[in-house]
Amino acid sequence: TFFLRLPFRRAVGRDAVPTVVAGDIMVGRKALVVDDHEFNRQIMTDLLGRMGATATSAADIESARDAFLKNTPDVVFVDFELAGQVGADLAKWIRTEAPTGRDVPIVATTAFEVDEVRRQCEEAGMDGFLAKPVTHVKIAEIMSRIEAIRAGDAPPTPWTATEDHSMASSIDLLAGGDPEKRAKLLRSPWKVLLEETAQALRHARRGNLTVCGSHAHRAVSAAVTLDLRPIATLARDLNLAANAGDPEKTLALARKLQEAVRSAHDQDTG
């Protein structure tokens, strides 16, 4: 009898082999994530990686086209409201011009689901719709439904993921039980929300409504990620007022938004 002792270290970080989550619906797939919000791209690509997929990302339609042609993804997740662009335009290009684009599942993501957004997505040839915050559970559900519909095993409606899962579950998953990593993940959307809110108010005061609306749009996404729905709604109202060219309403909403964000941040940080 003999014993052999081999030294080893526990795999951490990039060396670790993560457990695949939310079933095997995404295992082995190539995914393209298109979102103008850096944190959203990071979270979605990390989640898809944990689900067994290989994900690339793009911040706008032009770079998304390049990524599509280079990587030939098996599925595309595209934010409906990109900065100065509409995700439906990318879907139309994929369906009509991109090689192999006719059969690729395309899923829209957005902070607010409204009938007009859904109509534009359907007309552009998209397959599904995910309300932010996007989680691994929602991704698995919508992909399973798309496959069932295409196989003729399910009716084509409802068109969205029905389960309402908090972003907290996905943050906890990515943090892996590490409180410091979890706090670090949440600092990014808070930083974005505070900065975008301040910029929105600054430009509202100067009468730069178009720029104010762009900052409000990014504030919506950050607020949804933090599960701050009332603040997300307020930022959305600000975006609409700015885009409508109403300076008085825009300024009033920008002030109200900053007060709400500061109050929520003070409560969160204790």
Rank of each mutant, 00 (worst) to 15 (best):
R14C: 02
R14F: 03
R14K: 05
A16I: 05
A16H: 10
A16S: 14
T19N: 04
V20Y: 00
G23R: 02
V27I: 00
L32R: 00
V34T: 01
F39T: 12
N40G: 03
G49N: 08
G49I: 03
G52A: 05
T54E: 10
A55M: 04
S57K: 03
A59H: 03
A59N: 04
I61R: 04
S63P: 10
A67D: 09
F68W: 11
L69Q: 13
L69D: 13
N71F: 04
P73S: 09
V75I: 14
V78Q: 08
E81R: 12
Q85T: 01
G87A: 08
W93V: 07
I94Q: 11
R95I: 07
P99L: 04
D103A: 09
P105K: 02
P105W: 01
I106L: 05
V107D: 02
R119K: 14
E122Y: 15
M126E: 01
M126L: 02
V134S: 08
T135F: 06
T135Q: 10
H136Q: 01
V137G: 08
I139L: 14
A140F: 05
M143S: 07
S144N: 12
R145D: 12
R145P: 07
I146V: 15
R150Q: 14
R150C: 11
D153M: 12
D153C: 12
